[in-house]
């Protein structure tokens, strides 16, 4: 699914990284704990979180993800927006909660990573 369609599905606004919005994504990781993301993520392209700070973008960038989604109506700070633009990472914000956002995406066959190595 294209990032722009993910945004539509979640009724989300694309607040940064507009240039990336046509990119296809298939695999999602959701967490508010960045070390857990770093420990358990494999090759997901999207990071969903209720966290709104630059470390979210750093974590996504480190793992070569293309999109972050801020749930629960969290606003993206200026730091987040400028870092996303710099890194070419799309930043979406939605009022939906984490569970609902994940549920909607799961229904559209966006999957968790199956390649559970190590």
């Amino acid at each position: 699914m294209k990032i722009v369609d993910v945004a539509k599905l979640l009724n989300a606004e694309i607040v940064a990284g507009d240039a990336t919005k046509e990119k296809e994504v298939t695999c999602i990781f959701a967490s508010d704990l960045m070390s857990d993301v770093l420990a358990f993520a494999r090759d997901e392209d999207v990071l969903i979180s209720g966290l709104s700070n630059p470390q979210l973008v750093r974590t996504a960038a480190l793992l070569d993800m293309h999109c972050i989604i801020l749930v629960r109506g969290k606003a993206a700070t200026d730091d987040i927006i400028s870092l996303c633009d710099k890194k070419g990472i799309a930043c979406l914000t939605t009022k939906l909660g984490m569970y609902e956002a994940c549920g909607l995406l799961f229904q559209k066959n966006l999957i968790p990573n199956k390649a559970k190595s190590k």
């Binding site: 704990l33 960045m34 070390s35 857990d36 770093l38 420990a39 966290l51 470390q55």
Partner: peptide
């Protein structure tokens, strides 16, 4: 609240 403190850093 910033997303740290899972206690996974050093093990990672």
């Amino acid at each position: 609240n910033l997303g740290f403190g899972a206690g996974m850093g050093l093990p990672n």
